[in-house]
Amino acid sequence: MNNLPTVILPRPDVIVLDIEGTTSSTWFVHDTLYPYSRERFGSWLREHSDHPDVARASAQIMQEGEMGAHVNVDTLVDQLEEWLDNDEKRTPLKTLQGLIWADGFNRGDLTSHFFDDSIPAIRRWHEEGIDLKIFSSGSVNAQTAWFGNSPEGDLLPMFTGHFDTENAGPKKLASSYATIREAIGVPADKLLFFSDLVEELDGAREDGWATVGVRREGDQHYDRGVGEHPEISSFDQVVWG
C-alpha cells in the first residue's frame, strides 16, 4: 500500500478493466508492440491469407479504406500504417495486431508490461470474489496474449470475459457499455469500469456504470485528466465501503 488518498466505493459485482494507461503503460504499447506489428503486416497478410480472421480483416480494410474489391497487399499495408500513425482504433488493424502479437508472445519475443500495483490488485479482487473482465480497443486475441504472458505468468484464469471494439463496439459510446452490460447480465450500478480516458469513462457512466479514472503520471493521457470521475494514480487507493 501507499500513502495516496483513498477512494471509497461500493463493492462491485464486476470490474471491467481497460489496459493501456490503466493496468499498463501506453508507451510500452507504442514503443514496443506497435513497431513489432508494423514490421510484420505484409508477411502476415501474404502468409496467412487463408486464416479466417486475416481474410475478414483484409475485407474490412478495403471497406473502411474505401478501396476497390481487388487491391494488392502493399496497398493494405499502407492503409494499416496510416491508421497506426494516426493511432486510430480500427477493428481490422486491432485484429491483425492481436494475431501478430499473440504469435510474438508465443515465440517468446514479447512479454507484457504492467504497472507495479496492477497485478496485486487483480489478484486481490479475484480473491475477494469479484468477477473480472477486460474491455480494450486491442482485440480479444491481443488481450489473451497480453494477460497470458505477464511478468508473473498467466493471469487469464482470473478473468471471465474479454470485450473489444468488434464484439462490443467503440469504447467511447454508451451503447458499447450497454452491450457489455447485457452480455454480463448484471445491473449497471454493480459494474465498475477503470480507464485513463475521460471519453470512455463518460460512455460507461452514461449507461449507469460506476467509474474510476486512472491517471498515471508520465503516461500518454495524464495531462487530459479524467473529468468529474473519481481519480486514482494507483489501484491501491481503491477501498470498498
Rank of each mutant, 00 (worst) to 15 (best):
T165V: 13
E81N: 15
N167D: 06
Q220K: 09
I15F: 02
E66P: 01
S118G: 06
T75N: 13
L33T: 03
L17Q: 03
L156Q: 08
A210D: 09
Q220R: 11
Y36V: 09
F28E: 06
E47N: 12
W125R: 02
P187H: 06
R46D: 15
M67E: 06
D53R: 08
D109T: 03
L17E: 01
S233E: 08
E39Y: 01
S37H: 03
I180W: 03
D87R: 13
N3P: 01
G161D: 09
W83Y: 14
E81R: 11
D189S: 08
T211D: 05
E228C: 08
S43Y: 03
R56Q: 13
D78Q: 14
L99W: 02
P52N: 11
D164Q: 05
E39T: 05
R56A: 14
I180F: 02
P92H: 09
T165I: 07
R11T: 06
A178L: 15
T75S: 15
K89P: 03
S58K: 04
F28P: 02
E66S: 14
A178M: 14
D154E: 07
E166S: 11
F159T: 05
G161N: 07
P52I: 08
M62S: 06
Q97E: 11
G108N: 10
V186H: 08
T32P: 00
Q63S: 12
D202Y: 11
V16P: 00
